[in-house]
């Protein structure tokens, strides 16, 4: 009886997770031949959060995100995005993704890039036009709308790439290092926009190398050697490790895992 009750409870909990959790993974795993890139990661990211992923290069952040957006097939475990198993088909247009390498067409203009993505997401012409206008203002490229991307500076390209990921107003957006090469002034603008997204109930999941950015996230996940070694609000993480900055907190967590 007790066992049956517990099972029922678990089922209820899982059902509740499905509705509140935007990302839910259990023992998610990706192996490339002999390399374990993502090692049994359990993630639960609630709706409306700013979730930051930190960790050194090669710790599995990008691989994890690629699995979550359906570009890589996991070799183990399972993952639910917006309540659907990946690789996702039904809700793929509710997800936005900005890869690390920018990946927009440098031989097209900013507008043509945005239009391409809008078409692929089957947006109506009117909603595209309003979205485009708003986004171009936020990324400060309104006057470069018809410039070829190859004529833009690195930071501008990054901003254009971000706009492509957001053009269809996704519910959850995965940003792989969105602020690399973006100057401090504009980064402030980005963060205002991320806060605005959160206020509208959107979920932003990003990787970052800047600790001051990680501090602004609601929840930080620490990745190392494919494992999630710590997760929590930045303040909690520092308290738990008795440190005053996230870098030290990461080091302490890493040592604990090694021991």
């Amino acid at each position: 009886m007790a066992g049956a009750n517990r099972e029922a409870e678990e089922r209820n909990a899982e059902a509740a997770d499905r509705t509140s959790a935007v990302v839910l993974t259990s023992k998610l795993r990706k192996e490339f031949e002999s390399l374990v890139a993502v090692d049994d990661v359990d993630l639960k990211i609630r709706r409306g959060l700013l979730y930051g992923m930190i960790g050194p290069n090669g710790s599995g952040k990008t691989t994890l995100i690629k699995m979550l957006v359906g570009l890589l097939r996991p070799t183990g475990g399972k993952a639910l995005i917006l309540g659907e198993r990946i690789p996702i088909a039904e809700n793929i247009s509710r997800i936005g993704y900005m890869p690390q390498e920018m990946a927009i067409y440098t031989d097209l203009t900013v507008h043509e890039n945005l239009e391409l993505f809008a078409e692929l997401y089957s947006m109506s012409k009117e909603s595209f036009e309003t979205r485009e206008k708003g986004l171009l203002k936020i990324i400060d490229l309104a006057d470069r709308r018809d410039s070829l991307v190859s004529h833009l500076s690195g930071g501008m390209r990054h901003r254009a790439s971000l706009a492509c990921a957001l053009i269809h107003d996704p519910e959850v957006v995965f940003l792989d290092e969105p602020t690399v090469g973006v100057d401090p002034e504009l980064r402030v603008g980005f963060w205002k926009y991320f806060a605005d997204l959160r206020a509208r109930g959107k979920t932003v999941i990003m990787t970052t190398h800047y600790m001051d950015e990680a501090l602004r996230c609601d929840v930080v996940g620490m990745m190392r050697l494919g494992r999630l070694i710590g997760e929590g609000a930045p303040k909690d993480l520092m308290e738990r490790t008795a440190t005053t900055d996230l870098e030290s907190a990461f080091m302490t967590m890493a040592r604990k895992v090694d021991a």
Binding site: V69, L71, I92, S93, Y97, P99, A103, I104, F117, L120
Partner: peptide
């Protein structure tokens, strides 16, 4: 090499 093909695949196309 620029990753745009992969990015397209992350959309409904």
């Amino acid at each position: 090499s620029a990753g745009t093909l992969e990015r397209l695949l992350s959309t409904p196309v």
